Amino acid sequence: MALTLEISASSAAKLARFAGLAALLASLAACGSSGSKGGGGGASVTQRGTYKVGKPYKIDGTTYTPREEFNYTETGVASWYGPGFHTKATANGERYDQSDRTAAHRTLQMPAIVRVTNLENGMSTVVRINDRGPFARNRIIDLSRTAAQELDIIRAGTARVRVEQLPQESMAVKDVALGGGGPDEQHQALAALASGQRSAPAAAPAAV
């Protein structure tokens, strides 16, 4: 006799959330304290955390005003950036690694955790915001190569997506970064949060 497994909508959402976080945690665990992989494969560099919101800035005549948020949602076009930026400094002082699940956003605090869903195929992934951009017209997020691969947008270059911030996870990485913790420590905090061993801190006044 065949068995039928029924999963409620809320349970399915929790599973999707866990799957996305598991992928992000695996990525952070891989890069962890090694910092940038670099082109030469030399000595590893420990990355320390910097929590950054930043002041308003102008690019090509458009002014962007960064702000701390924890319930941000947005729908628009995603793009990705890869080899040409690999190992270069990100806006919050880390080094960009195209194999990590990270992304650039124009106004969200860094770091912040968001789920990105490709509205054209239903695929989704969870990424950590650690850079500024994109500044091409109508684009709302610039994904690392690995994140773009998971959404299947490498070949097309862009896709229409929905960006949904994960508030508890974003508050957890903020707390760690304010204490000087880099990607490795942020990974540990997210793992503890996912396992129920850590409670997300209450939102604090925005840093600059």
Rank of each mutant, 00 (worst) to 15 (best):
residue 179 G to P: 06
residue 203 A to N: 05
residue 203 A to Q: 08
residue 208 V to G: 13
residue 63 T to D: 11
residue 7 I to W: 12
residue 22 A to W: 06
residue 151 L to K: 01
residue 201 P to A: 10
residue 118 N to S: 06
residue 67 R to Q: 14
residue 25 L to H: 13
residue 168 Q to Y: 11
residue 57 Y to G: 07
residue 142 D to A: 02
residue 158 T to C: 02
residue 13 A to Q: 14
residue 10 S to R: 14
residue 37 K to I: 07
residue 187 H to Q: 10
residue 207 A to N: 09
residue 41 G to R: 05
residue 46 T to Y: 13
residue 140 I to V: 14
residue 184 D to Y: 08
residue 73 T to C: 06
residue 69 E to M: 13
residue 68 E to P: 08
residue 66 P to A: 10
residue 104 A to V: 01
residue 55 K to H: 10
residue 171 M to E: 04
residue 151 L to C: 08
residue 26 A to Y: 09
residue 161 V to K: 01
residue 10 S to N: 15
residue 80 W to E: 02
residue 114 V to P: 00
residue 207 A to C: 11
residue 97 D to K: 00
residue 39 G to P: 04
residue 74 E to I: 06
residue 21 L to K: 03
residue 138 N to L: 07
residue 54 G to S: 08
residue 41 G to A: 05
residue 15 L to E: 14
residue 81 Y to M: 03
residue 93 G to T: 12
residue 117 T to S: 14
residue 50 T to Y: 09
residue 52 K to W: 05
residue 191 A to I: 07
residue 114 V to N: 00
residue 98 Q to N: 03
residue 164 E to V: 13
residue 134 P to E: 00
residue 7 I to C: 13
residue 93 G to Q: 12
residue 22 A to D: 14
residue 40 G to A: 10
residue 135 F to V: 06
residue 68 E to V: 11
residue 134 P to D: 03
residue 171 M to P: 02
residue 202 A to N: 11
residue 65 T to H: 14
residue 68 E to Y: 09
residue 16 A to R: 08
residue 152 D to Q: 08
residue 76 G to S: 10
residue 205 P to L: 10
residue 49 G to A: 08
residue 40 G to D: 09
residue 179 G to Q: 10
residue 175 D to E: 11
residue 183 P to C: 05
residue 121 N to Q: 12
residue 154 I to M: 12
residue 110 M to H: 08
residue 85 F to K: 03
residue 103 A to M: 01
residue 147 A to R: 00
residue 98 Q to T: 02
residue 103 A to E: 02
residue 89 A to C: 10
residue 16 A to F: 08
residue 70 F to C: 00
residue 128 R to I: 00
residue 105 H to K: 05
residue 126 V to Q: 02
residue 19 A to P: 12
residue 182 G to Q: 07
residue 97 D to Y: 01
residue 66 P to V: 06
residue 197 Q to E: 15
residue 189 A to N: 06
residue 132 R to V: 00
residue 4 T to W: 09
residue 73 T to S: 11
residue 170 S to H: 02
residue 109 Q to E: 05
residue 96 Y to R: 01
residue 96 Y to A: 03
residue 182 G to A: 14
residue 76 G to I: 06
residue 163 V to L: 05
residue 48 R to A: 06
residue 61 G to P: 08
residue 136 A to D: 07
residue 64 Y to T: 05
residue 169 E to W: 01
residue 189 A to T: 07
residue 198 R to M: 12
residue 152 D to I: 02
residue 50 T to F: 08
residue 112 A to E: 04
residue 34 S to C: 12
residue 178 L to Q: 06
residue 45 V to C: 15
residue 49 G to P: 04
residue 148 A to P: 00
residue 13 A to S: 15
residue 193 L to H: 07
residue 171 M to L: 15
residue 163 V to G: 01
residue 52 K to D: 04
